[in-house]
Structure formats: C-alpha cells, structure tokens
C-alpha cells in the first residue's frame, strides 16, 4: 500500500472538492477498496471517507424508497420497508458476503465494487485488460468458471460480483449522483457498462463523481419477489448464478414481471427480453423456459462457465415457478 492521506468528508461539497483529485478514492466501508489496495490493484494516495454523508433510508412521497449511499448493507436489509415491500432486495443483500462485511459495506461501495476475476486481482503477475487496457486477458484460456456468459467482449469476460445490484437492477432503481456539473440521476440498468474495448471503464461515473443515494420506485410486483443465489459453498461465496425476480400473476397470466441475473454478465443483467416475452402471456413453466432460452440465446460462455447457461435457465424457471405459486 502506498503512503496515504485520509479525510473524512462531512458534506457533499467537502467530498466533491477532494474527489476530483485523480489520486484520490472515495472510501465507503473499505471492504473492497482496502483489499484491492493491499493487493496492489488500487493505488490511491488519498482517501476521502464518505461514510459520514447521508446514509438514511426513507420512504419517498410517491411510495418508493430513498437510500443514502452511506447506508450500510445490513441496515438496508434489516429495514422493515425493504423486507416487506422489496423482499428480493433484502434477500439479495443478505446473500452477499458475511454479516461482518455487510455491517461495514455501504450501498455506494457495493455499487462500485470490482470484479473478483482471479487475474484482475493478481496485479503482481497476471495480464488484465481491466487493470491495464491493452495488456491482454489471462482469464481467456485460464480459470474462467466464475466468468460471464453474456455481454462480454474479446477484451474482458469478467462478471460484476454484486448481489445487491442484481435486485436493484430488477427494481428499476435510480442512482443519484453529484458531480462537478451538479446532480443527475442514472437508471441502475444503465449505470454499469459492458466491457467493449474499454473494460477499465466500468460505470457512467466520471472522475470526481459521488454517488449520493439510490432511489427505488414503488413496485407492487416486488412484493411477490425472491432472490436465489447459487454458489460453491452454502454461504460466504460469490454467486455462480443468481436470480432476482418479482412476479404478479392474474388469472393464470403474467401481469407484471421483473427479472435480473447475477454472476453471468459484466453487469447486473436485467432480463428485458425474457420479461417482454412473458408479460401478458401464460404463467407456466413452459413459458418461463421459453423466455429464459430467448434471453440467453446470445450467450457465448468461456469453456469453464458453459454450465452457467443451463444453471441460469434452471434457476430462473424454478424461481418463477415458485413465485407463480403453481408448485404449491
């Protein structure tokens, strides 16, 4: 770790005035950043602690939620409104990491956490286009079981590791961002970028931008929602595949549906095509199957991750079937 300065920002203006410095990084809980600094992947010389900025969780006027970026993951998951109105979000957060880490991790940091690709993390010895654009990608032809099957590019096949973001993608969350040019709002589904030929650019944030809050619109469909995470051990492991879904069925047909996948793409993968295929149609296992097959039709998995196409299909069908109540 390089020698560092540390500043705890007490206001957004204070944070903004320091965040623009190219060598500075915002510090949330530090659960990702500090780890990456130890691994030599991140090398800031200044940290701006943003955990003293707002972290409250409030109901919005239109019946949604506004969650301050500094809110701890555990606080969000435990919040009564999240548990009752957006169960998939509570469950997704609780599926991530460990209780200790969730107590530390902030919502802002979770959105910005970086991939767990083994070669990305091995700054000392491995080539990685995400760390050094143009240097090559060692996951290609190496260990890529945890890698993406859709949305990848020849330059990078890494996944976005977050669980929380998968639920947020399904919930049409919007990110409130403050930057040099003022405030703006970005839909979460647009916030993370596909790698293209610049896998080092991961989000729409410009240098110096700060995430202030996440807003979740009211979502009746989310009340009947679930998050299922499939992983290599029963707990405390990143997703191989995860599914966030909400479903409302009326008289046997799909009234509304929200679906997002984790573990299979460079960003939280909102399954728009599957949703479109399902909406208004029958809420049957066959329809769920057909929708997910359509969604993943373009999958180009690396060799070790080929199983994820099937795993994603089965997991989604099982989740939707359960939400539709047809197996009860």
């Amino acid at each position: 770790m390089n020698p560092l300065s540390y500043h705890r920002a007490l206001s957004t203006a204070d944070a903004l005035s320091r965040a623009g410095d190219g060598a500075a990084r915002l510090l949330g809980g530090g659960t990702n950043l500090v780890d990456l600094m130890r691994k030599g992947v991140e090398r800031p010389s200044a940290l701006v602690d943003v955990t003293a900025l707002p972290g409250t969780i409030e109901a919005t006027a239109e019946g949604g939620l506004l969650i301050g970026a500094a809110a701890r993951n555990s606080a969000v998951a435990a919040h009564p409104l999240v548990r009752s109105q957006y169960p998939m979000l509570a469950r997704a957060i609780l599926a991530g990491a460990s209780a200790q880490i969730r107590n530390m991790a902030t919502v802002g940091g979770n959105l910005m956490q970086r991939t767990r690709c083994l070669y990305f993390q091995d700054a000392a010895a491995s080539r990685c286009n995400k760390r050094i654009p143009g240097s090559g990608c060692e996951a290609e032809g190496g260990f890529n079981r945890y890698h993406a099957i859709i949305g990848t590019s020849p330059s990078c096949i890494a996944t976005h590791p977050s669980d929380m973001c998968v639920a947020l993608a399904a919930l049409d969350a919007r990110i409130h961002v403050a930057g040099a040019a003022g405030m703006r709002t970005i839909p979460l589904v647009d916030f993370h970028l596909l790698p293209g030929d610049r896998p080092d650019i991961e989000t729409l944030l410009a240098p110096g931008d700060i995430i202030l809050a996440v807003e979740i619109p009211p979502s009746p469909v989310a009340r009947n929602s679930a998050y299922r995470k499939v992983r290599d051990r029963a707990s405390y492991a990143f997703a191989l595949v995860s599914v966030a879904a909400g479903l409302s069925v009326r008289e046997g047909s799909v009234e509304d549906v929200r679906i997002a996948f984790g573990g299979i793409a460079p960003k939280p993968w909102r399954a728009f095509r599957a949703e479109a295929a399902l909406r208004g149609g029958p809420a049957t296992r066959e329809a769920f199957e057909a929708a997910v097959i359509e969604e993943l039709a373009g999958a180009t998995p690396p060799p070790e991750a080929a199983f994820k196409v099937e795993l994603a299909r089965r997991t989604l069908v099982a989740v939707l079937t359960e939400l539709s109540g047809s197996d009860r």
Binding site: L118, D122, S126, F143, R233, A234, S235
Partner: peptide, 14 residues
Amino acid sequence: MNATLADYHIPVHL
C-alpha cells in the same frame, strides 16, 4: 490463482 481464503473454499458453518 486462488491465493485467498475467499477463492479457496473451505467449509463454512452452513
């Protein structure tokens, strides 16, 4: 390549 306890999976309580 998995020189961490996050990527080498030993059994957890669950």
